[in-house]
């Protein structure tokens, strides 16, 4: 099995088939490795690469080459969907990722519903699709992972989040209408990425959908339901999908096992070995501390990565969003430890 390409290895793991060793990946989106050190050395920089397919593809390729992660990930932020849906975006800088400057709707009742099939052919969604297309064409053996912002986070990026979180309880019908709408948009986005443009897998990060924020009842009613709706659509298209859940997950552990995704990625404080023991059918992904990647030395990063491999974690990856000031030598220590066991 030493002949496996990175793409075959990842796809096999996501199908629960045996592999020689776990892949080491970084999905893009919330969890992207476009660190300042790489951008400064290549000159392919953010924020420009957020808005131009060729530049986005170049940067994604640079990141893969410099880090040796076994995938290519696009985009480099979590604002693509919300911007298309009308929210205004602060485009960020070399060091700081874009963020929502203002939500377009004050409440769920004021949301204007567009035609999602039209929308996914415009704006930065089209930029991401074009970038994925170029990358897939030029990298047949490396999986291109396209990262989407999860339903709850997208909804809370187009409706004022303070109001939105209250409406989850006070106006469930309104909240469901908006979540169904953004989930349909995400599914249409995924379909374009996967069907004709070469992305090999979808990753979803939904940082507003945590057990700590929503509690178990609302996590089940909203996060689980719409994530599964998106997962099912990606499966209908015949592709795998990874879900990242932020936070300590302790209040929603049994619900995580009901996510129908092909791999479940968690933050550093989650014991993935325990999660595997409790839910043997879950393919685990994670969870090397991003704090460690920023602050520790390559030797300890190598040891942490080797420990994750020894623990039988199925896919090795950073635990959360990386700081853009993360050290490249630390990321390389992580990838080489997984690949060769070395530092």
């Amino acid at each position: 099995m030493s002949e496996l390409t990175p793409k075959e290895r990842l796809l096999r793991v996501l199908r629960k088939e045996p592999v020689d060793r776990p892949p080491v990946i970084c999905t893009g989106g919330m969890m992207n490795a476009a660190i300042v050190e790489i951008m400064k050395s290549t000159g392919h920089t953010l924020p420009e690469a957020h808005f131009d397919a060729a530049r986005m593809a170049e940067l994604a390729q640079d990141v893969q080459a410099a880090t040796s992660f076994e995938n290519i990930g696009v985009p480099f932020c979590m604002t693509v969907e919300a911007e298309l849906l009308g929210s205004s975006i602060d485009h960020g800088t070399l060091e700081c990722e874009p963020k929502i400057a203002r939500e377009v709707f004050p409440s769920t009742g004021t949301v204007a519903f567009g035609d999602v099939d039209q929308m996914v052919r415009s704006g930065r969604i089209q930029v991401v699709i074009d970038a994925a297309h170029r990358l897939a064409r030029n990298n047949p053996n490396v999986p291109v992972i396209a990262s989407l912002t999860g339903p709850v986070s997208t909804a809370a990026s187009i409706v004022d989040p303070m109001t939105f979180f209250k409406e989850l309880r006070k106006n469930p019908a309104g909240a469901h209408r908006v979540l169904d709408y953004v989930t349909r948009l995400l599914a249409a986005f995924a379909e374009r990425l996967l069907k004709d443009n070469g992305a090999g897998a979808i990753a979803v990060g939904d940082p507003s959908a945590t057990g700590e924020i929503l509690g178990p009842a609302m996590f089940e009613e909203y996060a689980l339901r719409y994530l599964n709706q998106l997962i099912d659509r990606v499966h209908e298209l015949g592709f795998p999908i990874i879900v990242h859940i932020c936070g300590d997950v302790k209040r929603v552990r049994p619900l995580l096992a009901q996510l129908r995704c092909d791999a479940l990625s968690t933050d550093a404080m989650v014991n993935l070995v325990q999660l595997k023991t409790d839910f043997p059918h879950v393919t685990t992904m994670g969870n090397l501390s991003t704090f460690a990647l920023q602050w520790k030395e390559p030797e300890s990063i190598g040891a942490m990565a080797r420990q994750l491999v020894a623990q039988g974690i199925d896919i090795i990856s950073p635990a959360c969003g990386l700081s853009t000031s993360t050290r490249l030598d630390n990321i390389r220590a992580m990838t080489s430890a997984v690949k060769d066991g070395g530092v």
């Binding site: 979180f165 209250k166 006070k170 700590e212 924020i213 929503l214 509690g215 609302m218």
Partner: peptide, 14 residues
């Protein structure tokens, strides 16, 4: 004690 979460706390505050 994790009987209330963000939505509940925000509604109490209102």
């Amino acid at each position: 004690t994790e009987e209330y979460f963000i939505p509940e706390l925000l509604i109490c505050a209102d």
